[in-house]
């Protein structure tokens, strides 16, 4: 049943066994084609395997399941060097969450739009408290150096 499959999926995900996890998501999606959580997990697995092309393809081929996965879509575009597309995806999102703002900062840095990038970093740093604060300040230093 689905509950057992999700338990198995959760286990493989926690172990970083993304091959097995994808197989389980496929089983769930065969039984329940509209299951957004299983689909989300499948996309996460593909990204974790650095298969950004396939992740973006499944997102684009399943618009009924992917409408809320704008962070994942933009992240794939960013890693595929479709940086302008990534920025469009981010800016088309209403009420972007902190994950999207974080990615927006990275996208703007890649686009060498340093003034906007600085604004985004200041906002993200102000509104986060997690394990990445040191890395964020390193990135902020790179932005301010680029503005000199």
């Amino acid at each position: 049943n689905l509950s057992a499959l999700f338990t198995e999926l959760n286990k493989h995900g926690q172990n970083g066994d993304y091959d097995r996890a994808i197989k389980v998501t496929n089983k769930i999606l065969k039984a329940a084609p509209g299951d957004k959580k299983a689909f989300h997990c499948k996309v996460i697995c593909l990204i974790q395997q650095s298969d950004f092309r396939q992740a973006l393809k499944v997102l684009q081929d399943n618009s009924n399941l992917s409408s809320e996965l704008t962070f994942e879509k933009a992240y794939c575009q960013y890693r595929l060097n479709a940086v302008r597309d990534a920025l469009s995806t981010i800016r088309d999102t209403i009420n972007p969450d902190i994950k999207l703002k974080e990615l927006e900062g990275q996208v703007l840095y890649r686009l060498e739009e340093y003034e906007d990038c600085l604004d985004v970093y200041r906002d993200v740093i102000k509104n986060t408290s997690d394990d990445y604060e040191e890395e964020r300040h390193t990135n902020l230093s790179a932005v301010t150096a680029a503005l000199q």
Binding site: L2, S3, F6, T7, L9, N10, G13, K37, H40, C41, I44, I47, Q48, F71, E72, Y75, Y78, K99, E102, L103, Q106, Y109, D131, Y132, E135, R136, T138, N139, S141, A142, A145, A146
Partner: peptide, 21 residues
Amino acid sequence: KPLFFDIAFNHVEFPSLEDKV
């Protein structure tokens, strides 16, 4: 080239499956 981290990758995470298991 200055150091610049891909912090966003850390946000690529499974959603909570608590309501599914």
